[in-house]
Design a protein around this nucleic acid. Structure first.
Length: 589
DNA sequence: AATTCACAGGGTTATAAGCG
DNA sequence: CGCTTATAACCCTGTGAATT
C-alpha cells in the first residue's frame, strides 16, 4: 500500500513538466489536477481506507506528544487563573469566557507544536510558563480563528503522518495531494483556501524555515485555486437571511409596551428591535456594555469596541450605534420603556447586554450565548407574536440585520448613506462626527415612514418574504406546497392588510444636513498646528478646493480641536471620544 | 514628485449548518 | 444542546497606473 502510493506520487509530479514545457504555470497546474483526478483512484482508496483510522485518531490525543516530552516534563503546575478570577469578580463574564476558551486553545496549540516538532519550541525552552509564552505566539489572532487553524492543521498533520509518513512541515507536493484527497471526499468549496491559510499560519508560528514550508512557493496555492474553482461549480447560491415584515415590527413594539407581558420577553423583544433599527448582528448586540448605553435627547446611543468590524486589530476601533427617536412604527416609547426595564430587571454589572432568558421568561444573571438567542427568538415569535410553530426556524439571528438595508435599497437610498447602518459594507463612505446620529435618524425615519404607510407591503416588496417562506417550508420542513400555503396565507394577509395603530411620535423625515458653512481659515490652520504659507499660495490652494470632496473634519472638544483626516476618498474618520460637541466637514486641499 | 485610485490577494472573523 | 465544520463577509496592504 505505502509503496504503491510513493510510486504514484512521482508520476503526479512529472505531469506538469510533460505538458507544461513552455506553457505557463497555470495551465500546467490545471492539466495536472485534472489528470490526477482521473488517476487518483489509488489515492482515493488509500484515503478511504484510512478514513476510519483518521477519524479515530482525531478523537485521540496525538500519540507523538508523549514521545517528545523533553519540555512538557519540566512544566510547573498550570497558572492559577488569576486573571480569570479578577475578570469574573469585576463582572466581565464575556471577557472571562473568551479568556477561558483562549487558554484551552493555546494549550492545544502548544500540543500541536510539540507534535509537529516545531523549531520555535527551542526558544520556549527556558520559559517557566510555556503556555503563557505560546499565548504570545498567538498574537492578536482570535480564539475562533485559532481554533479553526488548529483543527485544519491537525487534519493535515495526521494525514501527512499516515499517508506520507512525514512530520510537518511536509513538501508542497504533499500538500497538493492532501488538497486533492480533501476534494475527493468531497469538501466545500472554501475548504482548500481555509486549509492553506491555516497551514501557512501554523508554519509561520512554528517558525519552520520558509523554503521548507509546504506553503512555500506557488505550487500549493495554485493548486488550491484550481480546486476551489472546480468545487465551486454547481455549488448552491448563498442566501441572505430573510427579513421580518414590517407588521411584525409593529407587533414587537406592542410586546415591549405591554405591561401584561412577562418582563424577560419584553426585554428580549426590545433587543430584537434594537437589532433591527441598528442593523446589528447578534455579536454586536451582545458586545454592548450596559454601563455605556445611554439615552441622550431621546436617542439611544453607545459605542461598540469589539465587533467583527471594529476592535484593536481593525482600522475602525469603535463603532457608534444610534437608535433615534424616529425609529418606530407605532409608538416611539418602546425604546425608552425597554431600556428602563433592562435597567430595572437586569441592572447588575456586566460586559454584555443580554442575560439568558430562562424557560418561563425569567432572566438569569448569566451571559446569553448565540444558542440562547435562538431559543429566545423562537419563544418570542411563538408566544408573543403568535406565529405558527412550523415557521419558527425560518428567521435567523441575522434576519434583523437585513430589514432596514433591504427596505432602504428598495427606496433608492444612496448606498453610501445606507451603509451607515450597522456598517453593512464598511468600505462605504461614512462620517464619524456629529452628523452621524443625524444621518442615521434620517434613515430610520425614512424607513419608518414607508413601513407605516398602508401600501407598505407593496412598497417594501414584502411579498418576497412570503414567497421565501413558502419555499422554505417545502424544502426544509418537508411540507407539500398546499400544506405550506395553508399556513402562509393568513400570515401574508395580515402582513399585507392589517392596519397599524395611530402612530405616536415624530413622523417627519428630517431634512438632509447640508455640508455646514465653511470653517473660517483660522480654525483650520489652528488645528493643523501651523500656518499654510503666504497668502498667495493659500489663495491658489483655495481655488482648487471646490473641485474636491471633503476629506477631513474639524472636531472641537472642550479642551482641544482636532483635524481628523480621511484614509482615502471613501475612508473614514474616527474619533476616540464618545461625543463631539462640535465638528464640521471641511473642504481641504 | 506626491497623492489618489482601483484592484488583487493575503489574512481574519462571525454566523449558519450539521451531527451525535 | 454543545460541539465541529463550512462559508460568507470582512479587513489590510501592496502595487502600479492615473491624477494632481
Amino acid at each position: 500500500m505505502w509503496h504503491g502510493l510513493e510510486e504514484f506520487l512521482p508520476i503526479c509530479l512529472a505531469s506538469p513538466r510533460q505538458h507544461g514545457g513552455g506553457q505557463n504555470f497555470q495551465d500546467a497546474i490545471a492539466v495536472w489536477v485534472e489528470e490526477a483526478e482521473e488517476e487518483s483512484k489509488l489515492l482515493k482508496r488509500a484515503t478511504g481506507y484510512l478514513h476510519d483510522d483518521l477519524t479515530w485518531l482525531a478523537l485521540q490525543p496525538p500519540a507523538q506528544v508523549k514521545e517528545q516530552p523533553k519540555f512538557v516534563l519540566h512544566e510547573p503546575a498550570p497558572p492559577p487563573g488569576e486573571k480569570l478570577r479578577r475578570l469574573l469578580e469585576s463582572g466581565a463574564e464575556a471577557a472571562a469566557r473568551e479568556e477561558k476558551l483562549m487558554a484551552i486553545w493555546v494549550k492545544k496549540l502548544h500540543e500541536e507544536l510539540v507534535a509537529a516538532d516545531a523549531p520555535v519550541l527551542l526558544k520556549l525552552q527556558g520559559s517557566l510558563d510555556p503556555d503563557r509564552a505560546v499565548l504570545l505566539l498567538v498574537g492578536s489572532t482570535r480564539t475562533s480563528t485559532l481554533k479553526r487553524y488548529l483543527t485544519l492543521f491537525r487534519q493535515w498533520r495526521l494525514w501527512l503522518g499516515e499517508v506520507k509518513l512525514r512530520l510537518p512541515p511536509g513538501r508542497p507536493i504533499d500538500l497538493v495531494d492532501h488538497l486533492m484527497a480533501r476534494r475527493d471526499e468531497p469538501c466545500g468549496r472554501t475548504v482548500p483556501e481555509a486549509l492553506l491559510k491555516a497551514i501557512a499560519w501554523m508554519e509561520k508560528v512554528a517558525e519552520f524555515p520558509s523554503e521548507e514550508r509546504a506553503t512555500f512557493g506557488r505550487l500549493a496555492w495554485a493548486a488550491k485555486d484550481k480546486l476551489a474553482e472546480q468545487l465551486a461549480e454547481g455549488a448552491p447560491l448563498t442566501k441572505r437571511a430573510p427579513r421580518y415584515p414590517s407588521y411584525l415590527l409593529a407587533q414587537m413594539e406592542a410586546v415591549v409596551l405591554d405591561n401584561g407581558q412577562t418582563v424577560g420577553w419584553r426585554i428580549w423583544t426590545w433587543a430584537k428591535l434594537l437589532k433591527i433599527w441598528g442593523s446589528l448582528r447578534w455579536s454586536d448586540l451582545q458586545a454592548i456594555i450596559p454601563a455605556e448605553l445611554a439615552m441622550v435627547e431621546g436617542r439611544l446611543v453607545t459605542i461598540l469596541r469589539k465587533t467583527k468590524t471594529s476592535g484593536p486589530t481593525r482600522r475602525v476601533k469603535e463603532l457608534p450605534v444610534v437608535i433615534s427617536e424616529r425609529a418606530f412604527l407605532v409608538d416611539y416609547r418602546w425604546l425608552e420603556t425597554g431600556f428602563a426595564l433592562l435597567k430595572q430587571f437586569a441592572g447588575y454589572k456586566r460586559d454584555y447586554l443580554l442575560p439568558r432568558l430562562g424557560a418561563n421568561g425569567v432572566l438569569e444573571d448569566k451571559l446569553a450565548t448565540y444558542a440562547d438567542a435562538m431559543v429566545a427568538t423562537a419563544g418570542i415569535l411563538a408566544n408573543c407574536l403568535k406565529l405558527p410553530s412550523q415557521v419558527l426556524g425560518f428567521w435567523t439571528e441575522h434576519s434583523e440585520r437585513s430589514v432596514l438595508p433591504t427596505g432602504l435599497s428598495l427606496l433608492n437610498v444612496q448606498p453610501a448613506d445606507k451603509d451607515l447602518l450597522g456598517r453593512w459594507k464598511p468600505e462605504g463612505s461614512d462620517i464619524y462626527a456629529r452628523s452621524f446620529a443625524g444621518r442615521v435618524a434620517r434613515l430610520q425615519a425614512q424607513f419608518a415612514q414607508v413601513a407605516r404607510a398602508p401600501d407598505r407591503y407593496v412598497e417594501l416588496d414584502e411579498r418576497e418574504i412570503g414567497h421565501e417562506l413558502q419555499l422554505w417550508l417545502v424544502e426544509r420542513a418537508r411540507m407539500t406546497s398546499d400544506a405550506a400555503a395553508v399556513i402562509i396565507e393568513p400570515l401574508v394577509l395580515q402582513w399585507k392588510n392589517a392596519p397599524l395603530h395611530q402612530p405616536y411620535g415624530l413622523l417627519d423625515v428630517p431634512p438632509l444636513e447640508n455640508n455646514p458653512a465653511p470653517v473660517p481659515p483660522s480654525v483650520a490652520s489652528d488645528s493643523d498646528g501651523g500656518s499654510e504659507g503666504d497668502p498667495a499660495t493659500v489663495a491658489a490652494k483655495k481655488a482648487r478646493v471646490h473641485e474636491r470632496v471633503a476629506n477631513y473634519v474639524v472636531v472641537e472638544l472642550p479642551g482641544a480641536k482636532f483635524r481628523l483626516r480621511k484614509a482615502g476618498r471613501y475612508g473614514c474618520w474616527m474619533g476616540r471620544r464618545r461625543l463631539f460637541r462640535n465638528s464640521v466637514d471641511f473642504l481641504d486641499s
